[in-house]
Amino acid sequence: MSVRYAIYFAPAKDTPWWDFGAHWLGRDEHDNTALPQPLLDEVSPTELASITQAPQRYGFHATLKAPFRLAAGTDEPGLITGLRTLAQTLKPVALGPMRVATLGNFVALIPHTASADLQALADACVTGLDHFRAPLLAADLQRRRIEQLDERETELLSLYGYPYVLERFRLHLSLSGPVDEAVAQGVTQAVSAHIDRLNTEAPLLLDRLCLFVERNPGTPFQRIIDLRLQA
């Protein structure tokens, strides 16, 4: 089966954080419609469209369980049921304040400080739903660039299909694909003041698990259901 699913956190539609992220990337991930991107002094419209092309396909989100194919004997309704059950055991986690950071060669929003509650929630999403995940294919391993992983990351990839989980997890919401240092600085300058305002006016709360799906290889991920955390 070529369909892939992912468990993400994404802000609720039409909230200030969603409005910022969806317009920054230029796509509404619910119905795959294009949205106007902001006009910036620091980044030209052409450059903004180029650097957001990669994250636009996934939508504005933070990964909790990376894209996976369904294991034999499981199906989408069962996954939704499992996700709903998990959401009922988890409580919302305050993420803010958020800040702009360069992670490797891309720009993202990350929390100023991590928390034990966030780590526990992320761990639960990885381990609690792993029976729905089919083993990785050779193409998946190639996509993960296994030769660039350290020993522990390679072990986590083997165990859970993704190398940046458990103690290697770092919540982030991507703002760009690969960029050079000058472009990264431009993005940071363009959005930092707005992020500071959002931190003050609408502190970001991880209050839902969102199921995204890629129906065909290479097509945009679509957000198909939100499940509120209820513990």
Rank of each mutant, 00 (worst) to 15 (best):
M1Y: 03
A12K: 13
D19K: 12
G21D: 02
G21Y: 03
A22S: 09
W24A: 09
W24D: 08
L25P: 04
L25W: 05
L25T: 08
G26F: 02
R27P: 03
N32F: 03
Q37E: 04
P38I: 05
P45A: 01
S50K: 10
T52C: 11
Q53D: 10
Q56P: 00
G59Y: 06
A71E: 05
G73Q: 01
P77A: 14
G78M: 15
I80H: 06
T81V: 13
L86W: 02
L86E: 05
L90I: 11
V93H: 02
M98R: 09
R99H: 12
G104W: 01
F106Y: 11
L109S: 08
H112R: 13
D123N: 15
C125N: 12
C125G: 07
T127P: 02
P135F: 10
P135Y: 06
D140A: 12
R144P: 00
I146V: 15
E147N: 13
Q148K: 14
T154C: 11
L156D: 11
L156A: 06
L157A: 04
S158R: 14
Y162A: 11
F169T: 08
R170N: 12
L171D: 10
L175Y: 08
A182K: 00
V183W: 03
A184Y: 00
G186E: 06
T188N: 06
Q189I: 04
A190L: 10
V191L: 09
D196T: 14
D196G: 08
R197K: 14
N199F: 04
L206E: 01
F212E: 00
N216K: 14
T219M: 11
P220C: 04
Q222E: 12
I225R: 11
R228E: 10
